[in-house]
Design a protein around this nucleic acid. Structure first.
Ligand code: FES
Ligand code: FES
Lengths: 140, 140
DNA sequence: ACAAATGATACTAATATGGTATCATTTATT
DNA sequence: AATAAATGATACCATATTAGTATCATTTGT
């Protein structure tokens, strides 16, 4: 079904790594060592995340990225929004005819409802909640 | 987000059309007139739906397709299952490393939960419920 | 015999996703 | 001042998925 794409998942991976790290500024190289996400790709993702203020970035020697928000202030929906254009609600699946108008298209209405549910769920999943999940498991 | 693809939506359109029609056997040409879904494509979709026992098909002159199930016995999940391979639950988004093992990957767990929710919702949307929705609107 | 239908299947086109490469710019260090 | 280590911007390529067309074979009513 692909609720999230690899971009999103990788971004989450990078953010999780940064959130766990005690280091302040982390370079792509270091992210790579921690996550094994292909370096060039990872870099592009981090650049985008910087532009969107999830990270701040520092050029030049000793440069890298610093997580800019607290882990409970970042939710999956934020990340998915950045990388998945399609999060916007779909338009008419048909080219009319099936339903008199898009406004009272049963299929569209129902699917839109589900999408809204999914969005709400994604909102509720924060980076912090992911960290916690892992921490809890580790205790057992 | 694309919970359903065009294949699925078209299939639903064709099924709705057949369910509403008083005609018994309907040819692709007639489906086309009713739905304006591209004929060749529609035909392929109907063929697939026949193989999957949603329609029975009749070759030769006066042939076509007859809806084989009652409209409350067909749910969106049935159709989506046929046309969207990806309904199966996703595998690891990464190539390991981020999480120790796929079994206790927080991200995957949470996304899987949402997917199961979506599946349940799709199950609850029957062709009959779509027909009803439209009927109800029309009364106002 | 023929025309009107579907079956099977191969092919093409468009789009979205995933990923790489390169040159420009900035900055800490020496 | 020179250099090396970093990101910024951006163009490009590769792959997969989705969407759609075309064609030949087969069946069947008239
Ligand atoms: S999907 Fe477009 S009018 Fe129903
Ligand atoms: S997504 Fe694969 S181990 Fe977490």
């Amino acid at each position: 079904m692909k609720l999230i794409t690899r971009h999103t998942a990788y971004a989450v991976g990078a953010i999780l790594f940064a959130a766990k790290s005690k280091q302040d500024i982390i370079s792509v190289e270091e992210f790579y060592k921690g996550t094994r996400i292909p370096k060039a790709f990872l870099r592009k993702i981090l650049q985008i995340l910087s532009k969107r203020n999830i990270f701040s970035s520092f050029k030049g020697k000793q440069g890298g990225f610093r997580l800019r928000k607290n882990s409970n202030q970042i939710s999956l929906i934020d990340i998915a929004d950045i990388f998945q254009e399609g999060l916007k609600i779909n338009e008419c699946f048909f080219k009319k005819k099936l339903c008199d108008s898009e406004k009272n298209c049963a299929l569209k209405k129902k699917i839109d409802d589900i999408e809204r549910m999914v969005v709400k769920e994604l909102e509720s999943i924060t980076i912090a909640s992911l960290l916690n999940y892992n921490k809890r498991r580790r205790l057992k």
